[in-house]
Design a binder for these strands. Sequence first.
RNA 1: GCCCCCAUAGCUCAAUGGAUAGAGCACCUGCCUUCUAAGCAGGUAAUCCAGGUUCGAUUCCUGGUGGGGGUACCA
Length: 536
Amino acid sequence: MKLSALESALKAEVKDSLGLSDEQLENFSVSAPPPHIRADLSLAWPIAAAKTLRKPPAKIAEEVKQALAGKFSAEVLPPGFVNIRLPDKVLLEAVSGMVSDAGYFLDPGRSGENINMEFVSANPTGPMHLASGRGATLGDALARITRFLGSRVSEEFYVNNVGGQVELLGLSLKARLLGQNPPEDGYQGGYLKEMAAALPADAAAWTDKQFSEFAVKEMLLLHKADMKAFGVEFDRWFMESELHEAKGPGKALEELKKRGMTYEKEGARWLGTSSVMESDDKDRVLVKSDGRNTYFLNDIAYHLNKFNRGFTKVVDIWGADHHGHAPRMEAAVSALGYDKKVFRIIIHQQVLLKRGAELVKMSKRAGDFISLKELLDEVGSDACRFFFAMRSPNTHLTFDVDLAKKKSNDNPVFYVQYVHARINSIFNNAPDKGIDPAGTFDAAKIVLNDEERLLLLKLMWFEQVLETCVRDFSPHHLTAYLMELSAMFHSFYDKHKVLNPGDPVTSAFRLFLLKGVKFAIAGGLELLGVSAPEKM
RNA sequence: GCCCCCAUAGCUCAAUGGAUAGAGCACCUGCCUUCUAAGCAGGUAAUCCAGGUUCGAUUCCUGGUGGGGGUACCA
């Protein structure tokens, strides 16, 4: 039984016995008891329900205990906790389902979901820097986790391949070819020198537009290579030019006009983000007084495009440097008639670089940044992704370059991967000791020790951890879980031998237990885009 | 000025409003003739300040203090 199913079962039991309504059982949920409590699951619901039920919490807790009697042994602790001890059979079944049933974690409630997740979307004007790794990790991990639970998820990268910055990029490249410095507000980085050196011979006769297109194409190739090296495979790279070819901005504008959300002022066309919708601090321009569309209108058209493609939910993952745009984008999506619930912007805070004791501010223009590629080459994708995934998006994370480069062995990712390698090694050794790695055992003969219990119970929480990641839009709960599970495994490994030729029942059971641990470790790492090595 | 994020151990970070606040790094003490010591066991060490809500606050609210980011008819 999955933990969610177990929770439902407990809830139903309490509901029937106490004769309660669904409303009265709101907030009924199981939690993990603190370490000093010797129990498997806790219920704090009696305390919360005391007010509405007009009964002392301890009395409610006592009733809950009675309701569960015969199926679960429970203990009441003040002020009204019910601490439950699960039968060994329940723990064994949970792990058994996990390792044998491929669809075990699929949530039927999610099968109708079709989510578009857009992230990174770095401008094609320079190499991707380290901070893009954060957005990439976040988006890809969330996509994988959500998919694992049963939703359809499409990962998307939006490429701003038109506009002033792209023209400037072309001019900067052209200047490099001619041996000149790029325009003052252009792109000064050395990468354009390299690109210029690789231009075809006839490039001297190119138009500005050709330079621009060439530069974008090359940058895009680099970005794709970077993402691939980082283990992120986008389902779609959406070109802004596609939007214009399909007259997207015009259509979006017409739609907004039709809905009465826009007005004309000072020769420009405005969206009433504050005056009409009261969701921004001021109104925003859609069409400038010179007749050109703003980027905002293009972005609205892009979001309309996403919804028109049939996604039931659209998620954007942005860096904090764009957070100011969130209110207007949300307002625009509402103005197009979409419910607030189907559009979500996740903001992740910026990445600060620390070199030695010095905090370095990254700047694409000055060229003082660490590229994602450089970081990957020196630290490796696994450590990078795990490190980024460990932090919640709200954290202002400080990336210690020296630590990442010199002492990458201290990264907790190795601690987790080591579990996988150790388990794998045990399975490899089993035949030598005359033990069948696929052997079965009689569950009735098993008496669980503390370490085995803890491991089985922890495995039951795998589902809940993933749900929490989706709820909070952050994979950091999963990294924390993997580290905790790893600690439990290493501790178990140190105390108990798995392969005991003289005790086939225990050996078979422990191999079964290890299958469960391996499933959670390999599966969890996979969801984070981190490898699970067979050997270390 | 206004908006967003943050403040927990020496450092980097955890903790659906629950019970004795957890990890990793660093530091100290032990443990390899037994499935991999990239490991285990143990130790030192923390909720910015002041109010409020609550049976219960690291968590929620208000006000401070300190830090980061943002505030274009740029993209």
